[in-house]
């Protein structure tokens, strides 16, 4: 217990001292998580909207596949992306391996099904009546989609926040595709794993506290919007 308290105390002091290495790690984490969430959102939300609003052959099967992808382990995604971006891979010439871009690609694949399925779920609940209303008021398909997105905005925002929470806490993709290079691809989770291996718990605990604080903030925002959606 004493060991934990000492580590916790040192970690708090490290955070308060605004340690440069700590800040760098946090910045890398936030950077890759932000961009992967942004890209996945720009792709996943329109995909979810399209699936929810259209009737087509094998629609149910596609939704089942997307639901299955929610359980895809991060190491499997990392392996898949690795086969493409490694030197011998199809995209090897782009030199993406062990860069932040590689992490962003992997994380985008990780949360794309989350955003698509949450969008399908959010839109399906309200789609029919709002679609008919927008249609009969003279809206075209794009304008109708915008109406539906606006009506489902709180649920969609919740999906984005959940996706962000997922990528900021993942370790497999960041480790395998980023390589945990100090100052470049070292994220909070990979740094924690490394420090644990080294037996250095202070930075590890400090990062853990920051990660929890970020998760807590994200959940406060999520709660706020979910509450607004119920009004």
């Amino acid at each position: 217990m004493q060991f934990f308290l000492d580590s916790f105390k040192s970690a708090i002091l490290l955070i308060l001292s605004l340690d440069r290495e700590l800040l760098e790690i946090i910045a890398v984490s936030l950077n890759v998580s932000f961009f992967s969430t942004l890209i996945a959102g720009l792709l996943g939300i329109p995909i979810g909207l399209h699936i929810a609003m259209r009737d087509f052959y094998l629609k149910r099967l596609l939704i089942t596949c997307l639901n299955t992808l929610l359980a895809l382990p991060t190491v499997v995604i990392a392996l898949l992306v690795y086969t493409f971006i490694s030197r011998k891979g199809l995209l090897g010439a782009l030199d993406l391996l062990y860069t932040q871009k590689a992490i962003i690609i992997g994380q985008t694949i990780l949360i794309l099904p989350i955003l698509a399925t949450y969008t399908i779920s959010a839109v399906s609940r309200i789609e029919e009546r709002y679609r008919k209303t927008a249609f009969t008021l003279g809206a075209n398909m794009l304008q109708t989609a915008m109406v539906i997105m606006r009506e489902a905005r709180f649920a969609l925002l919740a999906a984005v926040i959940i996706a962000f929470g997922r990528v900021i806490a993942e370790v497999g993709i960041s480790m395998m595709l980023g390589g945990n290079a100090k100052g470049f691809t070292r994220t909070m989770t990979t740094a924690m794993a490394l420090e644990y291996d080294k037996g250095e718990f202070v930075l590890s605990v400090a990062l853990g506290i920051v990660l929890l604080l970020i998760s807590f903030s994200v959940n406060i925002v999520l709660n706020y919007f979910q509450g607004k959606g119920r009004v």
């Binding site: 009546r129 008919k132 209303t133 009969t136 003279g138 606006r150 009506e151």
Partner: peptide
């Protein structure tokens, strides 16, 4: 234009 039974207001 169609007004549904219970009109949907955005």
């Amino acid at each position: 234009v169609l007004l549904q039974q219970y009109p949907v207001m955005f």
